[in-house]
Computed example of a mutant assay.
Amino acid sequence: MPRSFREHVDEEILEGAASLFAQHGFAQTSLQAVADAVGLSKAGLLHHFPTKDALFTAAQDVVRVQSERVHGMVADLPPGQARDRRALELLVDIALDRPGLVALALGPLSHPDTSDPKTGDIAGDGGRIFEIFALDPQTGDPERLVRVMGALSALAVLSLAANRAGERTGWRPHIVATCLDALGYHHAARPETEHGKA
């Protein structure tokens, strides 16, 4: 079912807002900055989202829905390389389409801001991002925790870079391979290059 114009505009607003929240935190992101980033007047932005809290909550909801969707698609797979690969492929696809939302979701993994409770704990929302990788961050193996956090941080940074470089399709297999390397699956199905295997 095709999206309505309003749904498309709301998605663009949420993507722009999420990117700013991820970069500057909730407290330091103004509605005017969001409006400027998405090409609306402040009044136009308020027509879609009546408050900054409503805007942030909507972005959190999108992150939660996407996390739950990915978790649902891998939950039946046993922990291990096949599950991790599938999870990374799904997360990379989301990140390439919605880099701001992924940056908001994964930002606290690399730079938690305890002074900004809104953006400081979004990834901790039920630990869903860790459940995707069959990991309990409180009791799980510390090496596995570090590897998952490293893979997710690489995913976020590389997806943003791919979008900025206009290389979403070309970089996708390399991002997945890099994240698999971070998880300890060295050279697990490296992408083909025009010169043969990478």
Rank of each mutant, 00 (worst) to 15 (best):
L90M: 13
L90V: 05
L91P: 10
V92R: 11
V92I: 06
D93A: 12
D93E: 08
I94C: 04
I94R: 10
I94V: 14
A95G: 15
A95Y: 06
L96D: 02
D97F: 02
D97W: 00
D97H: 03
P99S: 08
G100R: 00
G100A: 08
G100E: 06
G100Y: 08
L101V: 02
L101E: 06
L101D: 02
V102A: 06
V102D: 05
A103N: 06
L104S: 03
A105L: 15
L106H: 04
L106A: 02
L106M: 06
P108G: 09
P108H: 06
P108M: 12
P108W: 11
L109D: 02
S110P: 00
S110Q: 04
S110I: 01
P112H: 10
D113E: 14
S115W: 11
D116L: 07
P117I: 09
K118R: 14
T119H: 05
I122C: 07
I122E: 13
A123G: 13
A123V: 13
G124E: 12
D125V: 01
D125H: 15
D125K: 03
D125F: 05
R128Q: 12
I132P: 14
F133S: 08
F133L: 11
A134N: 07
D136H: 06
P137S: 10
Q138E: 13
Q138N: 11
Q138V: 09
T139E: 01
G140I: 07
E143G: 04
E143P: 01
E143F: 10
L145T: 13
V146H: 10
R147H: 09
V148K: 05
M149K: 12
G150K: 04
A151H: 08
A151F: 05
L152W: 10
L152D: 13
A154L: 14
A154I: 09
A156H: 09
L158G: 12
L158E: 01
S159T: 09
S159F: 08
S159Q: 14
A161F: 12
A161G: 04
A161C: 00
A161K: 13
A161R: 10
A161Q: 14
A162E: 00
A162Y: 04
A162I: 03
A162R: 02
R164W: 01
R164G: 09
R164K: 14
G166F: 11
E167W: 04
R168Q: 08
R168E: 11
T169P: 00
G170V: 03
W171G: 02
R172K: 11
R172M: 03
P173G: 05
H174T: 04
H174Q: 09
I175R: 04
V176C: 06
A177E: 01
